[in-house]
Simulated assay, not measured.
Amino acid sequence: MEDFGIIVACCYQDYLFAKGCCASIRHFLGDVPICLIVDGTFSVSSLEKAYNVRILNHHNVTHELLKKRSFGWGKTKMIAFWESPWKHFLVLDADTNVWGNVLKYADFKNYDAVIDKPRYGYPDDKVCEFFFEISAVEKYFPDFNWQAHRHDYFCTGTFFGTRDIFSLEEYIEILDFTEKHPGIFKYGEMGFLNFMLFRAADNGKIRLGQVPMQLIVPDFEREAMQKRFPVEETGPVVQNEEAIVIHWCGPKPRLSTSQVYPEPMSFCRRQFLHNERGYTGTTANLWLKLEDYSSLVNVYKNKILRKLSQRRQRLLTQK
């Protein structure tokens, strides 16, 4: 595929999964180009060396607006629409794995973007929980027919896109709106990106396709996942030519978790570690457990700091 690459968005606390994500790309898709959009200043040289990964970060993004306003949870991946090294791209969250040849869904001849087709529609309360406050969207965007898409709204952990299908001016308007009206659009970019995509498609500005290309792990029992995505000593076993992106958007696939089935990610993390350091067996498992522990400490530290900041803001407001 010409002028195409895969873009993985990550920050410090999910970099351990980004390495597994990139390893899954190499395992199933070969030498397809990869770019990492990095929110933060930590070193990602291991991925650069292992898989010849390109890097986009605060230093080399060309648009000043994106440097200042589009890094951070819920905004980092949006940079791909203007700064992608390739005209066409696949975006992946760090906590995903490619399973099979998902590139078969990349139909850029007929579409400018191809997104996941969810397994179910959303009643009003779920639209409000996961995507946007309905009453507010009806008030501020009365021309948007949100009900027409209640069976189409998707988790934005993965999608195929094309550079510059949105103008920066439109994005600025969305950023300004979300800052002025926090809480209307939900889950970072998920609410407003769904809104932007479907509004543009409704207005004939983009060609939007949908295929069932993403599996949301919390929707499935662990036993069903284990049966569907078996991992043997020799590696993942793809059944019935399945091609899908596995997305651990709830509990994360740390090595020894009991909450979800982590083996696809664990295998890929081991693959990366073997490629990077030559570690296998017990040594590899100990290293991955150390990564898991460090990641959890960082998660809880950030939660505490966030709560302290919120408490401080409330106290300042009361004065």
Rank of each mutant, 00 (worst) to 15 (best):
L66N: 00
V61W: 00
R26K: 12
Y51F: 15
R26G: 06
W73Q: 08
I34P: 04
F81R: 07
D95W: 11
L56K: 07
P85K: 13
V38K: 15
S84F: 11
N52C: 11
C35I: 08
L16F: 12
L56S: 05
I79G: 10
K19I: 00
D14K: 06
S24D: 05
R69F: 13
V38I: 15
G40S: 13
K19C: 02
E64W: 01
D93N: 10
K19E: 02
G30H: 05
W73I: 02
L16R: 11
R26E: 13
D95A: 08
A18N: 02
E64I: 00
T76G: 11
V32Y: 09
K87V: 04
K67M: 09
H88Y: 12
A94C: 09
K68T: 08
C35K: 10
Y51E: 04
F28Y: 14
L29Q: 11
F71T: 00
I55M: 08
K19S: 01
W82P: 00
N60A: 06
K67W: 04
K77Q: 14
W86Q: 06
S45T: 02
F28Q: 08
F17H: 04
H58P: 10
C22H: 01
A18D: 05
D31N: 15
D14S: 08
F28T: 02
I25H: 08
Y51K: 03
L66C: 02
Q13K: 13
K75N: 09
L65C: 01
L29C: 12
Y15V: 04
A23L: 01
L92G: 13
H27W: 14
E48V: 09
V61S: 03
K87M: 13
A23P: 01
I79Q: 14
H88D: 06
H88R: 09
L56A: 04
V32P: 02
I25T: 05
I55F: 07
L56D: 02
H63R: 01
G72I: 00
P85S: 14
A94F: 05
K75Y: 15
S45A: 08
W86E: 11
L66M: 01
C22M: 10
G40F: 12
A18G: 07
R26I: 06
C21W: 05
L90Y: 07
L92M: 13
Q13H: 12
G20Y: 02
D31A: 15
L47S: 05
S24Q: 07
F81P: 04
F28M: 07
N52Q: 14
L65I: 01
I55V: 10
A23V: 00
G30K: 08
A23K: 03
A23F: 03
I79W: 15
C21P: 05
D31Y: 15
T41M: 14
K77T: 10
L90R: 07
K49E: 12
L65P: 00
C21E: 11
